[in-house]
Simulated scan of single mutants.
Amino acid sequence: MQLRLSYNTRKEKPLDASEPKILIVDDARDIREPLGQYLHKQGFRTELAANAGEARRIIEEANLALIVLDVMMPGEDGLSLCRWLVGRGGPPVILLTAMADETDRIVGLELGADDYVVKPFNPRELLARIRAVLRRAPPPEPKVPTGRARIAGWTHDPTTHRLVHQDGRDIELTTGESRLLAVLADHPNTVLNRDRLLDLTVGRDAKAYDRAIDNTVSRLRRKIEEDPKVPKLIVTEWGGGYRLAADVEAE
């Protein structure tokens, strides 16, 4: 089946990193690529996978809001992958099923899929179902890096919330300070705005607010900067956010 959407290879303008990311898993290139471009134009970031193996690698690395998953694929099928996804706690799944495969739709819903769309489908219908599932789905927990990292003479261990300098200084961080530093270290020399930092450190918690990021940055600076009033490690990008101005080496 071919998805009837205009498709070209022109590079799309990148979306903001705070936009929801959707994984499309389908072995049919003429479905997954036009669908990926269509969802991109609707304001979603997209990842594409041709089989369950590619999908598993992306799922382990990316912070996904939702997965559009074809049931009939060579090798591991979509129902098996759906079972694995539900067993590990998400993200939400919308199944793509053939019109005649009513049993697959029932089994998929029993496994825990959030919805299904029958092929051939109207992409606008799929878009409406994606938005409906996202509205009722709880926000995903942020994936904060857990590996030790060397940052400008400091070694940060996110699991113990400790920061040790090569000169012997040993500093205990709060959980919030440690999570923020881990996220900054995972994006060295990259400007992250306050909304993005909130997403990556605490998720879309209704109690969180952007000044919480400013306050945490201020506390971190007092602990690690030589002169907190003139920071050289965690620098402010006016109108943008914050940037870790250092190379990072993973231990």
Rank of each mutant, 00 (worst) to 15 (best):
E237R: 12
L79P: 08
D195R: 15
R219E: 10
D167V: 08
T9I: 12
E177S: 03
G108V: 14
P145H: 14
E225F: 12
P120F: 09
M72R: 12
L85V: 15
E225T: 08
I106E: 14
K21I: 03
K143Y: 01
A185L: 10
Y38P: 00
L244H: 10
T160E: 07
L66S: 07
K229Q: 14
L220A: 04
T216M: 13
V191Y: 03
A152L: 07
A149L: 13
R29P: 00
E125P: 00
K232D: 09
Y242V: 07
L163V: 13
L198K: 09
L173C: 04
R32V: 01
G203T: 09
G87A: 15
P20A: 02
I58Q: 10
K11Y: 04
V118D: 07
G147C: 11
A65C: 05
N193W: 10
G75I: 11
A137V: 03
E54G: 02
K41R: 15
E76C: 07
R129E: 02
K119S: 03
R162M: 09
L163S: 05
R105F: 10
A185S: 15
R219G: 05
G176A: 13
G153I: 15
Y116Q: 03
R56H: 02
P142K: 12
P91A: 12
G112I: 07
R4A: 13
L64N: 04
A98V: 13
P158K: 11
A65R: 11
T46N: 00
R221D: 02
V235D: 05
R243H: 03
R221G: 02
L233H: 06
Y209G: 06
I58V: 14
G53E: 14
V202D: 05
S6H: 11
T175W: 09
E249L: 11
G53N: 12
V93A: 07
M73Q: 03
I22A: 00
E60T: 13
K119A: 04
